[in-house]
Simulated assay, not measured.
Amino acid sequence: MSGNASSDPATARILDVRDLRVSFPGKGWRAARVDVLHGVSLDIRPGETVGLVGESGSGKTTIGRAVLGLVPVAGGTVEFRGERVEDAPARQRRRLSRHLQVVFQDPYASLNPSIPIGETLAEPLHAQGMTGHDARHRVLDLLDRVALPVDAARRLPREFSGGQRQRIAIARALAIGPELIVCDEPVSALDLTTQRTVLDLLLEIQEQTGVAYLFISHDLSVVRYMSHRVNVIHRGRIVESGEAGQVTAEPRHPYTQRLLLSAPVADPTAQRARRIALGRRQAEETS
C-alpha cells in the first residue's frame, strides 16, 4: 500500500489540538483519576488525512472523542476553524456537528437495526431543515456516492454485509457536507478485501468533496495507505509525527519501529524476518 498525495503545508488549519489532557475516574469510589492523554497536540488542514496510530489503550480513540466534544477535557484546547470545541454548550455542539462527523468501528452497532437505511440517512437532513423532495434526492445521491443501489433506502441494516453497512455509515457521515470526519478504526472489523474497497471509497470521496479525515487505527499499513501525515501515540503521548512516507518507512522512535515490524506483509519470508526482528526487539526491551 502506498501513501496518499502530499498536502500543501501553507494551507490554514481547520483543526488545531494543543496540549490536550484527558483523565478518567479510577476504579473504586476512592480511586484517583487516571491520566489518559498527556499534552497531545496535532492539527489538520482542509482536504488532508492525518493518521493517528497506536495499539489498544494508547488513547487514540479518546483523542477522536475529544475532537467531537464527547469527553470532558482536563486541559489544553481543541479548536475547529478557530472555535473552541471542548466543553462547548449543547447548542454550539449541534451547530458544529454540521462540520464535524464520525465513522465508528462497528458498522452494525452504529445503525439502528429497526429503521430503514433511507430514514437513517434522512435523519441528519431533517435536523438541518431539509424535507420532502430535497431530502429524498439527497438520500439517493448519498447512496450513489457510496455505490449502493436505490432500493437500499427501503432495506434494514441486517440485509447488508459488513462492508455495505460501513458504506452506509460513511454516507450518513457525509449527509450534511462536513469538512472533517473522524474515522475511528473504520475498517478493523472487515476482511482484508472489503477493507481495501472501503479505504478506496474514502479516498475517492475525499478527492471529490475535499473533506478532511482524522484517521484512527492500530494498523500502520492502513494508516500509511490513507494518510498525508501520521501521528504515533503511545501511552497517551505523541511519540513521533511527520509525513506518512517518512514515519512509516523510516521511523525514528522505538515504539514506531515496533509497530512497523508488527505490520503484516504479503511475502512469507519477509513476514518471518519481521517476526524474528520483533522478537529480538521485545527481548531487548524487557532485558
Results as ranks from 00 to 15, higher is better:
G236Q: 12
I205N: 09
H99E: 10
L42P: 06
S23G: 09
P186K: 07
H218Q: 11
A109T: 10
G69E: 02
R84C: 02
I115K: 00
P46D: 06
E179A: 01
H228T: 07
Q166H: 14
D219N: 15
R229D: 10
N4T: 08
L70Y: 07
F80S: 03
P89V: 00
Q257E: 15
G39P: 11
T194C: 10
A74L: 12
R81W: 08
R172W: 00
M226F: 02
R98K: 14
V150F: 11
T49W: 04
N231M: 06
I216Q: 12
H133S: 13
N112R: 06
L199G: 07
K60R: 01
I181A: 01
R224Y: 12
V73F: 08
D16S: 13
G132K: 01
P254M: 07
R275L: 14
A147Y: 08
A169W: 00
P186W: 03
A66S: 08
P178W: 06
A31H: 12
R196I: 14
V50A: 09
F104D: 11
A173N: 04
Q128D: 00
A175I: 00
A88N: 13
F24P: 05
S58R: 10
A171I: 06
I233V: 13
R237I: 04
S23L: 02
I170V: 09
G26E: 10
H228D: 09
G210R: 08
T120L: 07
